[in-house]
Design a protein around this nucleic acid. Sequence first.
DNA 1: CCTACCGATCGGTAGG
DNA 2: CCTACCGATCGGTAGG
Lengths: 197, 197
Amino acid sequence: MTVETRRRQIEDVASALFHENGYAATSIRDIARALDLQGASLYSHVSGKEDVLSAIVDRAAGRFEASLAEAEARADVDGSSAADRLAAIVRAHARLVAAEPELASVFVTEWRHLTGERRAAILARRDAYEARVRAVIADGMAAGQLAMTDVAVAAAFVLSAVNGIATWYSPAGRLSPDDLAERYADLTLRALTEDHR
Amino acid sequence: MTVETRRRQIEDVASALFHENGYAATSIRDIARALDLQGASLYSHVSGKEDVLSAIVDRAAGRFEASLAEAEARADVDGSSAADRLAAIVRAHARLVAAEPELASVFVTEWRHLTGERRAAILARRDAYEARVRAVIADGMAAGQLAMTDVAVAAAFVLSAVNGIATWYSPAGRLSPDDLAERYADLTLRALTEDHR
DNA sequence: CCTACCGATCGGTAGG
DNA sequence: CCTACCGATCGGTAGG
């Protein structure tokens, strides 16, 4: 039983089209057609094309931030090590990308079509997110749990890998988002751990 | 002393613009303006917008294929192990992406705006490239040099990581393409090796 | 390589 | 949510 507002329907259809063809190659009329509407009718619900993109990107950012905060909070309660925290963060991130590849890919690749303050705001949020990942990696190195390497390079390596899931993963494949996330967390820990086990 | 044909100048300017704003958001007139030409004048040198994209993507594919072949040939002569081959391949790929992020990002992300046979052809070349990477990983596992994991997942993880370099790397930064490539090869081997050292 | 121009499509508005 | 419509811009052609 999905009670979706028209506004939300528009965003979902737009996410799928932006994921498939990109923001610039998707017209307002493409979005309208997918909802059996006239192009002009969309403007009863949204104030412009960039407004739709902005709403999707904002919601995606919120989802990733919540997922990160939850993973960290859980690790705090457990009193986990920095390495465990990193695994939990990567697992949560990978799971979200696999579960919602359309939302994730708009967040990861289409934000650049935002302009002005909206673009600046989303960039700041991305930076903050990535900084938290770097901080956990740095903690792990300081605690001797992770191999000493360049923190920025290690974070970029891992974040590119998990974000890339959006470009190839299909929920119809043989791996569930949970399975995939587990494997990605494992590969990440191996990559950054001094010695295994 | 760079003797660049006009055709090549067009492709280089287009690569930069496609990298920056994407293919769909870049107009023929944008490309022309960057060369101090009128939009219509471009058609003396190219037969259409997609023709430009196709030429860039083809050249990029050729570069990646040559880089892969060279890395494999060198490993053959050395009689290297599968793990060494994988490291050489990742190193070569990462170096190329870092050295030419504009070319690489058009190859990695903008190919989807190709249509018909050109799209099918580039997809086939990408598939072949990725299959060779998977084969080397599988060899390494069979030889006991790499940890037994899902080959497709491991390859996707690694390829996403190295391709991601195009989205953030700046040649003006503190790491040279060679330095970065070395670190990426190292992270990859760690991720896929059973036990270190 | 330019000027002049084409039909199609774009994002968006007016008014109901 | 629709019809009718707007100015701007798109990829591309004709003809020189």
